[in-house]
Design a protein around this nucleic acid. Structure first.
Lengths: 257, 257
DNA sequence: GTTGAAGTTGCAGCCTGCGCAACGCGCGTT
DNA sequence: AACGCGCGTTGCGCAGGCTGCAACTTCAAC
């Protein structure tokens, strides 16, 4: 809608791939370097980018600041934080907190495994909705219309032999997830990585976030991972209650709305 | 330099204070709401902002993504990460990693204390150069010209009775810091909080980052905090070596350049 | 049903951002 | 030491994109 702003944002996104100089940015965005320079100067003014002594540009401190402030604004994250930390300290497994945003899942918190083997993932990443445990949890409790709409627009590209690629199969699994109150990902997203995830609910009873535990099968088999399930559910229940959820309430009305 | 981009960035900064609707943003930035809407749409297109169902805008997932990617790009942070985690696991104190950027200190990593008492600080925050331990460490090793230049432009506003407000006193302290290889902050920045910090050096011998430990005096007195100094220095030395620093080398030439 | 607040759209004017071309500057090469 | 190349920077004139106004829509409250 606004050309120059759009271009400026493209520059920022480009810088997300790593530092770059003027020409590289001009080439990457297809914009005249004069223009890129002016945009960069504006961005630099507000600390969105910085340039080092050799005129390379990289993302600046404002980006960090905005991100951590925005993360703090997410109620769920604040509420979940201590619970996740305790869970992570006890079990030492990679733990994610994800929410649905604009029809996509987003990690808004990540706690590292205590093992040497680290999972490649980060805050801000969009895990696939159809092949991740958090994705399934977040989809499962959506109103049916929205759920089928989102599922019908998924690309569902397979990344492992186990990836669910059929919309109807996925919808059936989502029903099962809703029934049992948690979801798994048995090497559906990444080979040799299993996950389980459970929903965090708000006062209305609706799922507002998902917590997942991810473990490479060389560390824990799927069956061993399942041993963590009771603890995971305990944690998500505690978070939900802190977040205003009342377990006894009958939420049927809201859930079908 | 570019009006619309500048305005768009102002909107993002404004959203850092919390979600807002169209009118609030228009009022805060002093821009016609039509224009704000168009800028927001551009921002939303690239996921820099999202709007919820009631038309409130808040910072979007792209900000998280960029931030975590940019953080990963900072070599120091990657290298320091495991060392800091080990230190934090052992001592359980609030630990910061800071670098100098555009003449300001910036936290690029933070590890939380294990106590209930948490320090208010976050990644992206600019600790004051004259009253924080990291600030002193980062300044101390700068070439003299740059150091005096930065110090002469500091506002040095006092936030506690102990804050150093005289440039010459600060410069003298910086000399001491350089000599002894570490810095302290004895309630100079925040009442009842003491810090110690030590430098991380790169291959050239120059200070590239600073690691600090911050403790409220109700938890540990300053003297008790000093007991952590040997461990802190060990950690920063280890990080420096991982980062290419060679302790035996004589770096005098570079340091005076 | 009416009122009002908040978001959205069409439009015309003109400002602002655009790309070109030329210049400056540092660095590596001959 | 001089040269030439690569890259960043600036001046300028054109016009395309951005702006703000006014009118319209939507939704909720009374």
């Amino acid at each position: 809608m606004s050309q120059s702003v759009g271009r400026a944002l493209q520059i920022l996104i480009q810088l997300g791939d790593g530092p770059a100089n003027l020409d590289e940015l001009a080439a990457a965005t297809g914009v005249h370097k004069t223009t890129v320079l002016r945009l960069l100067r504006t961005l630099a003014q507000e600390q969105f980018v910085v340039r080092d002594s050799s005129h390379r540009f990289y993302l600046g401190s404002r980006v960090f600041e905005l991100s951590s402030r925005a993360l703090d604004q997410r109620e769920v994250r604040r509420v979940a934080g201590p619970h996740l930390a305790a869970f992570n300290r006890k079990h030492g497994r990679t733990t994610h907190l994800a929410v649905l945003e604009d029809g996509e899942a987003v990690y808004i918190d990540k706690l590292e495994s205590h093992d040497q083997i680290r999972m490649y993932s980060r805050i801000g990443l969009h895990p696939p909705l159809h092949s991740s445990a958090v994705g399934k949890v977040l989809l499962a409790d959506l109103p049916e219309a929205e759920r089928t709409d989102i599922v019908s627009h998924l690309s569902m590209s397979p990344t492992t032999p186990n990836t669910i690629t059929d919309p109807d199969t996925l919808l059936a699994e989502l029903d099962a997830v809703r029934q049992q109150g948690w979801a798994h990902d048995r090497e559906e997203n990444e080979p040799s990585i299993n996950c389980i995830a459970a929903p965090v609910r708000g006062a209305s009873g609706r799922t507002v976030a998902a917590v997942s535990v991810s473990v490479p099968d060389v560390v824990l088999t799927y069956d061993q991972l399942l041993n963590l399930l009771p603890d995971l559910l305990e944690v998500t229940t505690a978070i939900s209650q802190d977040f205003g959820w009342q377990p006894d309430l009958n939420h049927d009305k809201e859930l079908t709305s």
